[in-house]
Design a protein around this nucleic acid. Sequence first.
DNA 1: CATCAACGTTTAATATCCTAGACGGATGGT
DNA 2: ACCATCCGTCTAGGATATTAAACGTTGATG
Lengths: 183, 183
Amino acid sequence: MSNDVSARLRSVRQMHGLSQRELAKRAGVTNGMISLIEQGRVSPSVASLKKVLDGIPMALAEFFTLDPAQAPPVFYRADELVELGEGEVSLRLVAASRPGRRLAILREVYEPGADTGAEMLSHAGEEGGVVVRGRIEITVGSQTRQLGPGEAFYFASAVPHRFRNRGRERCEIISAATPPSFY
Amino acid sequence: MSNDVSARLRSVRQMHGLSQRELAKRAGVTNGMISLIEQGRVSPSVASLKKVLDGIPMALAEFFTLDPAQAPPVFYRADELVELGEGEVSLRLVAASRPGRRLAILREVYEPGADTGAEMLSHAGEEGGVVVRGRIEITVGSQTRQLGPGEAFYFASAVPHRFRNRGRERCEIISAATPPSFY
DNA sequence: CATCAACGTTTAATATCCTAGACGGATGGT
DNA sequence: ACCATCCGTCTAGGATATTAAACGTTGATG
């Protein structure tokens, strides 16, 4: 996956929450071309790849420098949280390995049926959190997942995202956002 | 010249002292293709460009990261030397702006007709110097130039190079090489 | 001067990419 | 159920990249 243009492009596109058609429209190429590239059925010309990346936008150098394996994970299992406090105070740090982290923790409650809306949120900064009770469906870019108690999330807020409580039980989340002034 | 594949490839190829044909042979492509790319008459496919770079060898990421403008210059005018000493001792530093410099200065004399040979020298380390008297023809990679008194040079010794005194006057150079153990 | 070898360039023919449009599947709203 | 809309994939044809072989130039050699 080091020099494979197809996997890189698919990864980059999805990380930016773009569909093939949407990226194609922004880049001024056809969706079919992006499909063919991502399937590895053609090796695009440098000119074409540059056009596609301009629609993101991203420089060729950055595209080829990217290491898909070192992209920070979006989801964390319950046992992937790092215990910071001790004694009476217990602080479990999410995305402890992520560099340049800077956020403030919040507590959020989602009533049954609650939904942040289909027009996917997207704003500056980063956010993350832990589900304390109930279940919640979280969509980040192209990835959607149901999280239950003990599970967690962490992502850049620029990636379009959505929170939905599709169950019958109230859902409680310990959440966080940065910069703190946003919330 | 930032995203221009043609200029980048020509620059990279010449910096490695390769002809179009030689690079084509190593890369397993035709010399015509490299010519067309370097003229900007075609935009190669990523697969083709990778093949070409494999013949150098160089990774795609490095190729697109290269900043041709920040490639250290090979030739310096007399007024481009930096005065280091003062009083009785005068030390004029060549390539003062080049980072990671580490060399020992030498004095060399070339009799008329002297020639280091057509089979271009190429070895580890870096070298540079100043012409004190007479004239000397220096070839570094694809660049050839006649230098006279007060002019200077500096390059990586891995790039094939050659010194020729084509005049009738003895030529004197204050020269340098690294690592010092080589000379 | 003639010859040879190496260089970068050009051209006609072939291989590959790229587009335009159609297809089947999934999702959401009425 | 139906319709509308989005998704990613596929196919035929025109556009582009790439090859193989020639060309003109330059520098070295006898």
